[in-house]
């Protein structure tokens, strides 16, 4: 199925938390500041419902998204008040993909874990949590994965300040 087909199907099964879709578009010739948007289309989901939404995507026979390929967050801008959390799903039977995006406030960012739906989420969420400071509620093993346990700050945030030393090792 293509993106429109998947989006239609998600509406038909009233997937929990589905709140919209965003598609690439051409630049508006009237508006000189508008450059359009390139790349992929994605569906937008409410943060609280994401685990139920993923379960619906996995269990529906026509969608059958059996692989969680990727889970990551993006800090679009230091001034922006929201993170984007992106999920990439893939179906090995129907051979289609879906990009999902969740907007979550930076202040005390919390989102339910997807570990119960896809175990693949476990390590991705650990990485996402340490890099952005997002709490995945209900995660079974919320330790750091790539960074040392005592690392201060969340490096992929745009407001991250590079440390000048770590355990007496100069980083300058």
């Amino acid at each position: 199925m293509d993106f429109e087909g998947i989006h239609g199907r998600l509406g038909a099964i009233s997937a929990p938390g589905l709140s919209g879709a965003d598609r690439p578009r051409e630049a508006d010739p009237e508006d000189k500041k508008d450059g359009g948007r390139a790349g992929d289309a994605f569906v937008q989901v409410e943060p609280g419902e994401i685990a139920a939404f993923l379960a619906a995507c996995r269990d529906d026979a026509e969608l059958a998204f059996d692989l969680l390929v990727d889970l990551t967050a993006t800090d679009p801008d230091a001034q922006d008040e929201r993170f984007w959390i992106g999920y990439q799903l893939l179906s090995t039977t129907h051979r289609h993909r879906l990009a999902i995006k969740v907007f979550v406030a930076k202040e005390g960012a919390r989102v339910p874990t997807a570990t119960a739906v896809y175990r693949a989420a476990q390590w991705h969420e650990r990485e996402c949590a340490e890099m952005f400071g997002i709490t995945f509620v209900g995660h079974p093993d919320p330790r750091n994965i790539l960074l040392p346990d005592d690392w201060a700050g969340h490096p992929l945030r745009k407001d991250y300040e590079f440390p000048t030393e770590y355990h007496g090792i100069s980083c300058e």
């Binding site: 690439p24 450059g35 359009g36 948007r37 390139a38 790349g39 992929d40 994605f42 390929v69 990727d70 990551t72 993006t74 800090d75 679009p76 801008d77 992106g86 990439q88 893939l90 993909r97 990009a99 992929l156």
Partner: peptide
């Protein structure tokens, strides 16, 4: 151009995915 794209290709070890976000500038957002 501003936008975002995920592309997954078959690497020898499996799917290598790149998710890139641009704001239309010379440097990636993510």
């Amino acid at each position: 151009p501003a936008g975002e794209a995920y592309v997954g290709i078959e690497n020898p070890r499996g799917e290598l995915g790149h998710f890139v976000v641009s704001d239309g500038g010379k440097v990636a957002r993510r």
